[in-house]
């Protein structure tokens, strides 16, 4: 089990709505200065996602619908829900913790400046995308992303990641993961539109929202509601068990591992 598998879990910190929007630009000033100009997309919009963890049932409907919609290769994911067993420190009570993960469409995306050919870029509407025509598959961006949200697609040989289903947003439809979210946990929208559901919820839950790894100054735009504050430190999670054995106990490995 390599380190990456063991320590993919992330930090989260309490951010107020203010911290999420106003200071992030300042906090991340150094980074933002390194960012190439945004291009494409509607400059009046800023897409973001709020994930209400109270409503996440860990069903992976998002995972599979995204995988189908975006024709991801088997064993590679643009989004997935990680599931943990957690213990309440005060009561000792055990519970499941479901953490849907995807590209954070950061305001200060570390994946963008490292791209040697400017294939990875941020659109004016905040969506971070990859131009497959330019990408050379070097995977610098894969390395740079603190959220493990990218992979190199073995079929296309280019960097691959969540686009918020930009092709569907532009058609007035919902991203596959949102449309299929059984518990209604995933809320997408334009945070610049005060009437949008996401803007209203950010307003309502102002003090409760958290983002993953705020110390990285990436200004992530996936906001979690119901996130446990104790996840601020990088937690040590015991690895999941992925390698398959056959009915005699002989090791088969993970079916979709790259060889």
């Amino acid at each position: 089990m390599d380190l990456a598998r063991r320590l993919f879990m992330t930090q989260a910190a309490r951010v107020t709505a203010g911290a999420a929007f106003v200071p992030l630009a300042q906090v991340a000033q150094a980074g933002i200065n390194d960012q190439p100009p945004r291009r494409g997309g509607d400059p009046t919009k800023r897409y973001a996602m709020l994930i209400d963890l109270r409503r996440c049932i860990g069903c992976q409907a998002c995972t599979v619908s995204c995988h189908i919609e975006n024709e991801a290769p088997l064993g590679k994911f643009r989004t997935i829900v990680s599931q943990y067993e957690v213990e309440n420190e005060e009561t000792g009570a055990l519970a499941q913790f479901m953490l849907p993960r995807l590209c954070n469409h950061c305001d200060n995306p570390p994946c963008v400046p490292v791209c040697p050919v400017q294939a990875t870029f941020q659109r004016e509407d905040g969506i971070v995308v990859v131009d497959a025509d330019r990408c050379v598959g070097c995977a610098y961006c894969v390395q740079a992303c603190p959220y493990d949200a990218r992979f190199v697609n073995p079929r296309t040989q280019v960097a691959d990641k969540c686009t918020f289903c930009a092709h569907r947003l532009e058609a007035g439809l919902l991203p596959a993961c949102v449309e299929s979210c059984v518990g209604g946990a995933r809320i997408i929208g334009d945070i610049n539109d005060p009437e949008s559901q996401i803007a209203r919820m950010i307003d309502e839950y102002h003090d409760e929202l958290m983002v993953l790894q705020p110390d990285k100054n990436t200004a992530p735009h996936i906001f979690y509601l119901g996130m446990d504050e104790r996840f601020v430190d990088r937690p040590e999670a015991r690895p999941g068990l992925w390698d398959v054995r056959d009915s005699d106990g002989a090791e088969l490995g993970y079916e979709y591992a790259e060889h």
């Binding site: 390599d2 990456a4 598998r5 993919f8 879990m9 860990g58 992976q60 995972t63 064993g75 590679k76 994911f77 997935i80 829900v81 990680s82 599931q83 943990y84 067993e85 957690v86 213990e87 420190e89 055990l94 499941q96 913790f97 993960r101 598959g137 070097c138 995977a139 610098y140 894969v142 390395q143 959220y147 493990d148 949200a149 990218r150 992979f151 190199v152 073995p154 446990d228 104790r230 996840f231 430190d233 937690p235 040590e236 999670a237 015991r238 690895p239 999941g240 992925w242 993970y254 979709y256 591992a257 790259e258």
Partner: peptide
């Protein structure tokens, strides 16, 4: 006490997957 928080790490789904993107690109680099 913090560590106990995540002692299970049962990860019935999704632990390997995001990170599984690493190995091949590293090799390529």
């Amino acid at each position: 006490s913090r560590r106990r928080l995540l002692q299970g790490g049962v990860a019935v789904a999704g632990t390997a997957t995001f990170a599984a993107g690493y190995s091949a690109p590293l090799e390529k680099m």
